[in-house]
Each structure stands twice: as structure tokens, then as C-alpha cells.
Computed example of a mutant assay.
Amino acid sequence: MTNIREAMPLLARHEGVWEGTYSYFNAANDKVDEHASRLLCRFPDEGPHPYHQTNHYTWADGRTEVREFPAEYRDGRVWWDNELIKGWAAEVPLDEYNRTVMLYWQRQGDPSLYLYEMIQLSDDGQNRCRTWHWIRNGLLETRTAIQEKLVTRDWRSFEG
């Protein structure tokens, strides 16, 4: 079995707890939603999934949501296939600065909607920005802009 940390060293630099804000904009560039986030990005030493991400979302009105994204590793990519999404993440070898990870995923049950995400990690590994382009039937539907700061590399301290 390939060690995911060795095969994807840039993605391995994302391990830890990240907090930030997700801002959603429609195709006319009007803000349509915003919420706070805490993401746990982990590479478990044991278990069936070499990568597992848990997203905690909190809105200003008190709503909360938690989403789990366990993933497999093969063919140089992380792969998701769960009840919400199906897709992959890969490092971008053309980025000579080793800052960029790209994702593609599609909503399960909605083949007309897919998403591309670009993640930029700061050189010091303390900040990242992410941009999602939601495309439906070939047209931009939504953009999501995400700003995050690393809280700690010790994701185990946040596990319940």
C-alpha cells in the first residue's frame, strides 16, 4: 500500500484543524450565504480510509451542520464516493511553488451539477484560501470563497 503522506506531500501539509469562513456568491456575484467553519483534515494511522475530513459549519442564526468525508487513495489522487459527493483531489505538479491542490466532484443524484475547487496553501502552511466553481449544465451557478487559518496540527485533540 502506498503511503499517502509520501505520495501527496502537499496535501499532507494540510493535516490539522482549520477555521474560517465560507462565502457563497451567485452567478451575478451577489452574496447568497456565509457561514463559519472548522475542518478536521486527518491522515489516520489505522482504519479503512487514509484520509478523512470532517467539516463543522455554523451559521449566524445558530444552525449547524457536520459532514464526514472519508476518502481512499489510488492513482495519485484522493477519491471520495459517499452519499453527498463523488470525486477526487490531486496535487498540481505544474505549480513549481507546491501550493496548489485541485478537486473535482459531482453531487450524487444530480449529474447536471459539478464543482471544481482550487486550494492555495501559504508557504508557511498557516493559511489557505479555497475557491469553488459550481457549474450546472455548463454554466456557472455559484462561486464559493473560503479563507482559513490553521488552528493546530493536532486534530486528535478535537476528536470526540
Rank of each mutant, 00 (worst) to 15 (best):
W79Q: 09
H35S: 07
H133C: 07
D45C: 01
L39E: 15
Y116L: 13
G138C: 12
G20P: 02
W80M: 09
A71G: 11
W155C: 01
D110N: 11
Y97C: 08
R136S: 14
W79F: 10
L11F: 08
E117I: 07
I119M: 14
E6R: 08
I4F: 09
R74G: 04
V101H: 03
W134D: 11
T54V: 15
D30L: 14
Q120Y: 08
S37F: 03
P70F: 03
T58K: 12
T131S: 05
L121Q: 01
H35E: 04
Y104V: 04
P111Q: 11
P93N: 01
Y22Q: 10
L121M: 05
W88H: 08
W132R: 09
R136W: 10
K149C: 14
E117L: 05
E15A: 07
Y114I: 04
A7M: 03
T54G: 03
T100Q: 03
Y51N: 11
L139K: 13
T142E: 15
Y97E: 14
T100H: 10
Q147G: 13
V17R: 06
A12C: 03
D75M: 05
E117S: 13
W132C: 05
V17G: 04
N55W: 10
T64R: 14
E83V: 01
A89M: 11
W80C: 10
V101K: 01
C129D: 13
G125W: 04
M1V: 09
G76V: 03
H56P: 02
D124S: 08
G87T: 07
N26F: 01
P70C: 04
E148L: 00
Y51V: 15
N29R: 12
L140N: 09
E65R: 10
A60E: 13
N137R: 13
M118P: 03
T64N: 10
A7P: 01
L84Y: 14
G160C: 04
T144H: 01
T100G: 05
L115D: 08
S157F: 03
R42N: 05
N55F: 10
P9C: 02
R42V: 00
